[in-house]
């Protein structure tokens, strides 16, 4: 798909956009940072989170799931954040927690926003009865409070990692279907869509090759803002004991499991608390800034 998109746009590149791709990207990023300092800060947090998640096996001092010391040890030079009630290194678990959070977030967003986008394309482009049926189903899903829906789905499917991702993903379907549908409705009226139809493109091809690339802006915003929410939902489900199953290093679960020790051993309390808040804060700030940048209606506010 990317290839088709490049060949289609290449001849129309304005002269100002010439120069190396990296150069343009760096200039774009700098401009973004100047205009949206908070968004850039959020971006920085997100980048740190991603690097931590990727490098966790290398930077973590111990394996996250093995007993490497006595239980409930206070912080020391060997265990910077101490150990938990199974003698596992808290610092390592916190670093590995970034992996779970991001992984669950990314996969569930891909499921949710992906399904939502397909439904939006069908709904917006085909219209008629398909549109009505899809939108009524979406309305019904929106009538569920989010945590109630996630909890119900996990309770039905059983709490494995995959099911938690599906449950979180479903939460993002209706909103995506609505937002992207309205974008599809505008694009559908463009002359190039008529042109594609005239030269005999199938509906399928028009939807995915011609309309989809032009509704990417709202999708990117939905994904960025959604990642923050997905991380909250995963942590909340895990906190309730119904999220990512043990012994995976999930911040929400680690926080809930250490509940009995919060008062006397606050080294079990702070790392997951700060990690969750910081991660969500980062995605929220970045998402807000991206929305302002990519949504022309909000520009200049």
């Amino acid at each position: 798909m990317t290839q088709g998109q490049e060949t289609a746009t290449a001849p129309f590149q304005p002269p100002a956009a010439q120069g190396s791709v990296t150069g343009r990207a760096v200039r774009g990023l700098l401009r973004f940072g100047r205009r949206k300092p908070l968004g850039a800060f959020g971006g920085l947090v997100v980048i740190i989170l991603v690097i931590t998640a990727i490098l966790a096996p290398m930077i973590a001092p111990h394996a996250p799931n093995t007993q490497s010391a006595q239980i409930i040890e206070s912080p020391s030079s060997e265990h910077a954040f101490g150990t938990d009630r199974y003698g596992r290194d808290v610092l390592s678990r916190t670093l590995y927690g970034a992996r779970i959070s991001l992984w669950v977030g990314i996969v569930s967003l891909t499921i949710g926003v992906g399904a939502g986008t397909v439904l939006a394309l069908l709904s917006g482009y085909l219209g008629g009865i398909v549109d009505t049926v899809i939108q009524r189903i979406m309305d019904s899903i929106l009538a569920f409070p989010w945590l109630v829906l996630a909890l119900a789905i996990v309770s039905v499917l059983g709490n494995t990692l995959t099911n938690v991702m599906i449950a979180i993903g479903i939460l993002f379907v209706p909103n995506t279907a609505r937002v992207v549908r309205s974008a599809v409705l505008t694009i559908r009226e463009e002359a190039y869509v008529d042109a594609a139809r005239v030269i005999g493109c199938t509906d399928w091809r028009i939807m995915f090759r011609h309309i989809l690339p032009n509704v990417m802006a709202p999708i990117i915003v939905l994904v960025t803002v959604g990642l923050g929410s997905a991380i909250i939902v995963e942590a909340s489900l895990s906190f309730l004991g119904l999220g990512t199953p043990a012994p995976a290093a999930s911040w929400g679960r680690d926080l809930a499991e250490s509940r009995a020790y919060w008062y006397n051993d606050s080294h079990l309390f702070w790392p997951p608390t700060i990690a969750i808040s910081l991660a969500v804060f980062g995605f929220n700030l970045l998402g807000d800034a991206l929305r302002d940048e990519l949504d022309p209606r909000l520009r200049g506010r």
Partner: peptide
């Protein structure tokens, strides 16, 4: 406002229970 939005509910609740205990020894 941003903090209220970003900090998950269960973290805020946990802080409310834990902080007074750690700081003032009051639960």
């Amino acid at each position: 406002a941003m903090a209220g939005l970003a900090i998950p509910l269960f973290v805020i609740a946990s802080l409310m229970i834990t902080l007074p205990a750690i700081w003032f020894g009051w639960t």
